[in-house]
């Protein structure tokens, strides 16, 4: 009896070890799972990116305009949690000193310091969030979009520790109870316990439409947000960046952000 139980335990243990080893060999082999299938009308790019002309944003928009944020959050069923501890945000505004910490000269016009800067996921070429994810729930698409598989995410929040831009939000509580906009049935709501962030509207790109924020900005005749292929020298975004001075958030970290900020001279006195 004793001997056979032991033998059973030993064999069982060996099997468990073998299964574990399978996982390691899988990881070492890396993954090139093709998860993308394209529709005919889909927009495509070698690397999607965005340029935001802040002067246009401040001067062309109506006072206090946040149409882009409203459009984004409505279109993606982003819950309005209502407190800073657990808020979910894909696109929001920050002051210059927070969007670009350490870049303040200290002698800027006071009005400039109060101006809102739009911030969102930078869809970094070297995305630390995707690098650290233990389940590959966060991954980079071939076109540069940083994606999250809401059904695979285990909610370890390692990606939140890794993101240098505070772009990721975690669903601390049931988000569906906090969706205050009309439910968009074409986009999934999330469950409690997973991380989410801006997806550059990959679902809209797939249907041949530009991101919701860009569309909302265009509707306001503001034209501050320009979206396009960063690797195509002929694209609108590249031409804009070739003609204007622009900066990116924390470029010294080597993440290669895909969101550029055009800073044009403005007179504040």
């Amino acid at each position: 009896m004793e001997a056979s139980r032991r033998k059973f335990l030993r064999i069982g243990g060996a099997c468990a070890l073998g299964l574990g080893a399978l996982g390691i060999s899988d990881a070492l082999a890396g993954s090139s799972e093709e998860r993308e299938t394209k529709r005919a009308e889909a927009l495509s790019a070698a690397r999607w990116g965005m340029a935001i002309d802040m002067k246009k944003c401040w001067e062309n928009g109506k006072p206090g305009c946040i149409e882009c944020i409203l459009a984004c959050h409505a279109c993606h069923n982003v819950p309005d949690i209502g407190n800073r501890k657990e808020e979910i945000k894909w696109l929001w505004t920050e002051k210059y000193e927070n969007a670009f910490p350490g870049q303040l000269s200290g002698l800027e016009p006071p009005a400039f310091r109060e101006r809102p800067f739009l911030v969102l996921c930078n869809h970094c070429a070297n995305a630390p969030c995707a690098r650290v994810c233990p389940t590959r729930a966060t991954f980079k698409r071939a076109d540069g979009i940083t994606m999250i598989d809401y059904h695979r995410c285990i909610g370890c929040r390692y990606c939140m520790a890794a993101c240098p831009y505070g772009a990721r939000s975690f669903n601390f509580k049931e988000p569906r109870e906090h969706i205050k906009t009309e439910l968009n049935r074409a986009f999934p709501t999330r469950e409690r316990g997973v991380v989410e962030n801006c997806n550059f509207c990959e679902e809209r790109l797939g249907a041949g439409k530009v991101p919701a924020c860009v569309e909302a900005c265009e509707k306001q005749n503001c034209g501050a947000m320009v979206f396009g292929d960063l690797e195509d020298p002929g694209s609108k975004v590249r031409k804009l960046l070739a003609a204007h001075f622009s900066i990116r958030r924390k470029p010294e970290l080597g993440t290669e952000p895909g969101v550029y900020y055009i800073i044009q001279g403005a007179h504040y006195a």
Partner: peptide
């Protein structure tokens, strides 16, 4: 106990990521 989705913990082994230090730590 820290996981948002504890029921999915086996995803660490089912979908292992060689680039993730957390994966290697569990191993």
């Amino acid at each position: 106990v820290d996981l948002g989705k504890p029921s999915r913990i086996l995803n660490i082994i089912l979908y292992p990521s060689a680039g993730s230090i957390l994966f290697w730590d569990v191993v």
